[in-house]
Write a protein that binds this DNA or RNA. Structure first.
Lengths: 142, 142
DNA sequence: TGCTGTCAACGATAACCTTCGTAGCACTGG
DNA sequence: CCAGTGCTACGAAGGTTATCGTTGACAGCA
């Protein structure tokens, strides 16, 4: 009989926590009222406050006094949270295959030609970096 | 005071549930003992059984009698679970930008030239589909 | 026949998530 | 001065997750 380990650090975000982190990442910062407003979802003031306090306890956000209210700032970067979440998905769901992940992504969504082009150039950069600086590939795109 | 909605359907998987689904996806099926063995993690027999029962209640797996034991089979496909998880991440963490997701992915991992090539061709296929059949791009790779 | 090992089912336990109600504090318009 | 407003802090209710202990069924064997 042991319950479960301390999730108060290192782990990913829960649904609601992610909703709120998402707002802070997009907006850069927010007071309780602002976050609640942006969420739009019909969620109580004290609920948002509570979750921000929990996130602070986890070290994911910090706050500054602003007038009589607190302004919250994200401490965890969205990319780093995203990297962890992606790792988890690649390993657990896509058997470690990033290709399969990419295939699923392009299957599920409709991309414009411009988006695909930009994604292609992301891969080109990765390929060049691997090749130690010289690219044997034609970089012409348009 | 309202608690929270029924998570027993439609939602994503929790950590442990995902561990176990991952085994079933990789192996195709498994008895409680097999899954527990494959997990390797030091987790009790009844714990694995319980989670399989919960997954069954959620409609994610089914079982067949095999001798005296049950053999469990995944009902939810890994790609469809992956698609949902990806959607969530793209929207909440990467502001809806799949490019940013891809950039993070190639940043975090080291890909071989072959892998990058295969990922490129996934994008090529998506581009052609969008272009209604004709690709103006040089497909030479090697 | 009675012991032992394997298994599913049931129920308990402890931690956690999400949602708020309520209280307390500082300030502001009458 | 006092009621109201806007905040944060405290803590509890109700549901979920993860982990097992225990029980009872059953099969093989000594």
């Amino acid at each position: 009989m042991s319950g479960q380990q301390d999730r108060r650090e290192g782990r990913g975000f829960t649904d609601r926590e992610l909703d709120i982190m998402s707002v802070l990442w997009r907006e850069g910062s927010g007071t309780v009222a602002e976050v609640r407003e942006t969420l739009g979802d019909d969620v109580g003031y004290t609920t948002v406050l509570k979750i921000l306090q929990i996130l602070e306890e986890k070290g994911a956000v910090r706050h500054e006094q602003e007038g009589r209210a607190y302004r919250y700032f994200p401490l965890v970067e969205s990319v780093s949270a995203g990297g962890r979440a992606l790792s988890r998905i690649v390993n657990k769901i896509f058997h470690g295959s990033a290709e399969l992940l990419l295939a699923t992504l392009v299957e599920d969504r409709e991309f414009s030609e411009a988006e695909i082009e930009r994604m292609r150039s992301i891969l080109d950069r990765a390929g060049r970096k691997e090749d130690d600086g010289i690219s044997p590939r034609d970089p012409s795109a348009k």
